[in-house]
């Protein structure tokens, strides 16, 4: 996928996150669409840096538009992007189960880092409170990741690390 297409998808994702997704809130929880996009793009496009680059740009935009402290979304996205690049070497990107395993890790890594940064910036959010809020959001985000993976993985070359494609 070309960068402009990926950027367009992330832009639409950012706008949907803050407008449409509130219509589908379950018990006050909405899926984290940007995190889902960072996870899927970062995992399935081997050799590209979509997760890190677009995660940084859109994380910063999200912080400017909706946050109070800059970096509380962008830094966790970069960390998730790094983790995904590392996992690409050990996992088969064509297998959805691997995507799920990586997604769980990236969701928890994102929220844990985000919580640490929020606490540093003076937020009174408690650790147990954060843990209590994560499960429903994680399940919901996993659902979105699965849908995105099924759509986007169709356009990705199968078995990119296979010797037959070299």
């Amino acid at each position: 996928m070309k960068y402009w297409k990926a950027t367009l998808i992330f832009t639409i994702g950012l706008l949907i996150q803050t407008t449409f997704l509130n219509l589908f809130a379950v018990a006050g929880h909405t899926p984290n669409l940007l995190l889902a996009l960072v996870s899927v793009f970062g995992f399935i496009y081997v050799g590209k840096m979509y997760g890190i680059i677009l995660g940084t740009v859109f994380g910063l935009l999200y912080d400017i538009f909706y946050g109070i402290t800059l970096g509380t979304t962008a830094i966790p996205f970069v960390l998730v992007g790094i983790v995904l690049i590392l996992f690409q070497h050990f996992m088969n990107v064509d297998n959805i189960i691997n995507m799920w395993i990586v997604s769980v890790g990236s969701i928890f890594a994102f929220y844990l880092t985000s919580w640490i940064l929020q606490v540093i910036s003076g937020s009174p959010l408690g650790f147990l409170y954060m843990l209590k809020r994560i499960p429903i959001t994680a399940i919901y985000t996993m659902l979105v990741i699965t849908i995105l993976y099924m759509i986007l993985s169709k356009g990705v070359r199968k078995r990119p690390k296979s010797r037959y494609f070299r």
Binding site: I52, T56, L60, L61, D63, I64, F65, I68, T69, L70, G71, T72, A74, I75, V78, L79, L117, I120, S121, G122
Partner: peptide, 28 residues
């Protein structure tokens, strides 16, 4: 380097608080 830049932005933002600037205003 990217991570370092972001951390610097975060630290500046924590120190300055929720104060915006011309650039963020145009974006917003």
């Amino acid at each position: 380097s990217l991570l370092l830049v972001l951390i610097i932005i975060f630290v500046i933002s924590v120190i300055r608080g929720a104060e915006g600037n011309g650039f963020t205003d145009i974006l917003k």
